[in-house]
Design a protein around this nucleic acid. Structure first.
Lengths: 197, 197
DNA sequence: CGCGACGTTGATTTGCCTCAACGATTGTGG
DNA sequence: CCACAATCGTTGAGGCAAATCAACGTCGCG
């Protein structure tokens, strides 16, 4: 059961044999996280990718003024990782924390590398996952450059309907790139004007 | 000569045998582009990745108001592509155009796939390139959310010193996320205040 | 030469931030 | 289980960074 979600995800991209499934189960490590528990803290050197089975993780950076800048939410079925620290071996600039009680699977860098040696076709899955990250980031970048805060919020609600009531407003505000105060006022204005939400 | 740059880049990540080098040469297509020549136009379906040998390409999106939003510059040694159109087969949202006379190599999606079948270790290179894209985009996103326009410009100059005098100001302005007017005034202010540039 | 794109400058406007105060929720120790 | 603290969300006043609009000089190009 705990592997169902990830095997299903992977199968959509590369069909898996029984043997391959068993192998994947053997290299993934399961972990339960309580709300507010950290998976990664600024300054550490990271070596794993995380797959969310249930719950939700949040990654953020502490900016110059000590404020938290939310970079990503990951709810069930998504990966989250600091590729920079994993690839380059540098201390990470960011934090990953459980936004709510969560269950995850851990894929270490050595396990990932070994798995592609043993089953070269896994590379296709890793590759496609990365392509999707690039696509997602490019779209988000474009959105931040070209859309107003209201549009970004509406888009957020469309993309992550399950998060709207799961994570705190200040984190949503940070994700879409505004202050909590402005976000609060903006929501009120949207409600009045459009009678939505 | 025309393959030197890319073979060197790839060799840094995966050592290449003579045979592998020859194979790569056989699947990459060379192309010369004149300034303002398009490689990709909005609405087309894309199937290739581009590697810049010399010159510089620029990708941009037409936003709602019909303005060009520059997403990326690629000068020599960089890849550029619309992963979204390639992976998902959707009409592309963006344009890729030569900012100056340029020479490129073309890697089609089928060629890429075939190459990893023939030489599984190529997957490692593709994979690492994508990881670097993710890292780059994540850093740029963070910069746009947390830094002022001046800081973003200084960072741009540090990262792409060769572009400062190669591409037009309005494109740099767009890349860092401000209007040409503001960019002009900002540069003047920076010159006065800090006697730099 | 003449036209259109580019860069500059200034006046005005606006989207969003900052700071401060306060009520509402949530978490915690006694 | 309550009391209190801490954090969160809301509201309002005032401020600033950057956008918009308009006018003008300049340059490259057909």
């Amino acid at each position: 059961m705990m592997f169902d979600k990830i095997l299903e995800k992977i199968s959509k991209i590369i069909p898996l044999s029984k043997e391959e499934k068993e192998y994947l189960k053997s290299i993934l490590k399961f972990k339960k996280l309580n709300k507010r528990e950290f998976l990664l803290k600024q300054g550490e050197i990271e070596d794993s990718y995380y797959f969310v089975i249930s719950g939700c993780l949040r990654s953020y950076i502490n900016d110059k003024k000590g404020m938290e800048q939310v970079l990503q939410f990951s709810s069930q079925g998504w990966w989250i990782a600091d590729n920079e620290s994993i690839l380059l071996g540098k201390p990470t600039k960011f934090n990953i924390v459980a936004a709510v009680d969560s269950e995850i699977l851990i894929l270490s860098k050595p396990a990932k590398e070994e798995s592609t040696k043993k089953f070269p076709k896994f590379a296709k899955y890793y590759n496609e996952s990365l392509e999707r990250s690039v696509i997602f980031l490019r779209n988000r970048l474009n959105e931040i450059l070209n859309s107003s805060a209201e549009e970004r919020y509406m888009d957020f609600c469309k993309k992550f309907p399950e998060l709207k009531n799961l994570v705190s407003q200040k984190h949503i505000a940070s994700y879409i790139g505004v202050t909590p105060e402005f976000f609060s006022a903006m929501k009120k204005k949207m409600k009045e004007e459009k009678r939505i939400l």
